[in-house]
Design a protein around this nucleic acid. Sequence first.
DNA 1: ACTAAAAAGATTGATATCAATATAAAATGG
DNA 2: CCATTTTATATTGATATCAATCTTTTTAGT
Lengths: 170, 170
Amino acid sequence: MVMSNSVEIPFSTTLLVRDTCLCLHAQRAARALARLFDDALRPAGLTNGQFSLMMSLNRPEPPPMGPVASLLAMDQTTLTAALKPLQRKGWVSVMENPKDRRGRLLALTGEGKAVLARALPIWKETHAALDQKLPDGSSARLRQDLQTVSGMTDETPNRALAAPAELQRG
Amino acid sequence: MVMSNSVEIPFSTTLLVRDTCLCLHAQRAARALARLFDDALRPAGLTNGQFSLMMSLNRPEPPPMGPVASLLAMDQTTLTAALKPLQRKGWVSVMENPKDRRGRLLALTGEGKAVLARALPIWKETHAALDQKLPDGSSARLRQDLQTVSGMTDETPNRALAAPAELQRG
DNA sequence: ACTAAAAAGATTGATATCAATATAAAATGG
DNA sequence: CCATTTTATATTGATATCAATCTTTTTAGT
């Protein structure tokens, strides 16, 4: 009798996982889109993530960190780290919240707004080109499905999706 | 006449970008799904990315690095880095390709196969639960749309999607 | 064969990501 | 008011991600 020294997973299973895993498909699409927008935004000096983050700070009132992290569906510690280079470049200011001294309020600086304004037309062009290349209706449908997934996997369902007060129109 | 010391982007534009940007939606969904699978796979000692990578190495013939990076839609240097911890743990072996001494051939070790085999049922459960929570038909549709996006943004269209020879049935 | 170009990976440096943990301040319950 | 708990954020350490650049080896053109 021979010791089984390895546990074989059938190749067909590998193919099944490759073809069906939503997580894998999402990571691949996220990497591909990140590269697309990173390349496009490079002349503006921003990555796709920095663009999204800075855009989310373009509000009437400076938001605290927690809601911003939720909006981007990222860990709070990731946001702390992501802010560092933007602070260093003087594009984002992080100030103590006078109403709650544990908290910070995030705001774009004048220069940050200028950088973002220069990046905006690039985003518009890139996104329009992307939309056009997608089959009719794909874009809106994909957006909707991605939103469903983001919300569903959240411990606090829809916390990131229920447009936070600071981002509500009106 | 007053110097304009900042370039304001209307708040309505911020809301538009937040609601429509496919890149942002993809990053959020990717982060959310990564957390979901990372949490589930933690008892098996794998992250979602390590699971996908190792599963892609479960083939009859050890593949070189390039096609694996393409399959995962990741940079080749990212793959080099991602292999490090797996090599250290003795789950993946990286050997010189005798047919092309520039290249490397990647393979699971016996222990790597065992780890992957223990992770597989966790993936199945997690993915089944996810599928069930999604509205009917969403899962397949989302997969398809994500694949379209991944392929479209690739410099070599469909390079990552055209199932590479090593992954072909037959 | 020789040279130039292309291909496969590795390395470095910067940022992104999250778990685990720590700190400080606010809220809550006596 | 005081002790406990909760909340908001920071720090550390490990991995992930990609651009820029480098080395080695193969391929192409002559």
